[in-house]
Design a protein around this nucleic acid. Sequence first.
RNA 1: GGCCCCAUGGUCAAGCGGUUAAGACGGCGCCCUCUCAAGGCGCAAUCACGAGUUCGAUUCUCGUUGGGGUCACCA
Length: 491
Amino acid sequence: MRIRTRFAPSPTGFMHVGNLRTALYEYLTAKHEDGSFILRIEDTDQERYVEGATDVIYKTLKLAGITHDEGPDIGGDYGPYIQSERKDMYLPYAEKLIEEGKAYYCFCSKERLESLRSNALEGSVIGYDRHCRNLPKQEIEDKLKSGMPYVIRQKMPLQGDSTYHDLVYGDITIPNDELDDQILIKADGFPTYNFANVIDDHTMGITHVVRGSEYLSSTPKYNALYEAFGWDIPTYIHLPLINGKSVDAEGNVTISKLSKRHGSTGFFDLVNEGFLPEAIINYIALLGWSPAGEYENREIFTMEELIKAFDINGISKSPSVFDYNKLEWMNGEYIKAMDSDKFLENALPYYQSLGIDPSNYPMLEELLKPRITRFPQIEEKLLFVKELADYDLELYEHKKSKSTRESSLDALEAALPVLKDSEWDRDILGENIKKLAEEKGVKNSVIMWPVRIAAAGVAVTPGGCSEVLMLLGKDESLRRIEIGLNRLKGN
RNA sequence: GGCCCCAUGGUCAAGCGGUUAAGACGGCGCCCUCUCAAGGCGCAAUCACGAGUUCGAUUCUCGUUGGGGUCACCA
């Protein structure tokens, strides 16, 4: 049997990296076995409809390289793929269960349920008290006839345990008295999420249900439904959650579900910060899963390689912490591996905002590529080309380069004429400066450091002395060095 | 609180009864160097605890502790 998995997000307008990872694993589970990956939009929405939210889902999947085989936008044999368009198909299933005595009408008001909950003693079972489970037939009919609002609940087993198997977590056993008589159809006639989910998964032929481990303890409820209908229970693959780590003012470390306070958690937040979709996917693929065999110890994966390497056995059981550090490193690896066209495409907006025409600086890409982990960093690295900063003279004091203000003054005075006479070429500039250093009997850096600082006005530049001079051009470089010289003289 | 799950360095993690307990990120150090870098080399750092089982436990069992999840007419 071909594997069929699905991604069933609700359109909230926000794609959390946790959801994205679930989608990725669903995709990989199917594709590794040459199966199908289905997109279903769960918009049993009530009041939560968000404009354009489904577009966010499409865009995310597209950018991430996760392509669905069936879905609302491309159709398929099991449509419709939007839950609101399937709403009429759920009630008959619930009614069938009522006929068979496996479900019942419940007329309890929200107020009654509320008071049930608030009156529950500490530690006692808080669920529904099954008040309507065995109402007399006549009473049910009267209430229905009088138009009294109702929900449909499923009769859950009262005693014993329920056990099911999960491919990641093994056998899970839950006492049945933990299982509430769950609502199948709400008073507004819509199915509950749980109910619609089961009906949809079954009617869409989903073979492997891949989802977050938060569903681990409610899965017996789903199974009770499959059993009531006499359907095959799908293969379950529950995924460990993704956590975030935060440190408070007192230095206490807290690990909890990934949220805003841990940094960006939305796919597009990350993209806007300069993380590449491929890097994000690569990183989250390795969060909770580790490759084996020929792929063991490998860090960088294309989607094709992920599909090949993916193996359910490599999924871990314990939650993992999202590490922006490692993501950033990985992003840098992707940048280093980029071809020129793609690099330029990503860098161009930053060049433009700085007023730089990259065709004037053939060495730019080569200088930048190994030195940035995210494209927005270009702004800092190239800031110096914009205008000479009113920099602090302390910049000239650099221990490693054996530079002080005094030595810098000397160096600039000596270097200026040499530079004026020099051909403006990276290597020739370098050689001339080295020659000068040799004549003066100092380390190269004693000259190069102050020249670069004077020219750039900042410590952060994409390259060394000669490279900065090249980027600025002869006239501008000399102008700046003279300014630096004057400032060091105290003018 | 009940129930469920989890537990190897700061983080991601390999390991599936006998190992010097991999690798990666980060950290630190050294080297290189025309700067912050990048690059090269190296170092530190982990089996939560306590009982068992066993000739032998990181590995199996139980308990403790800790963490997470879940208990809706939300999805």
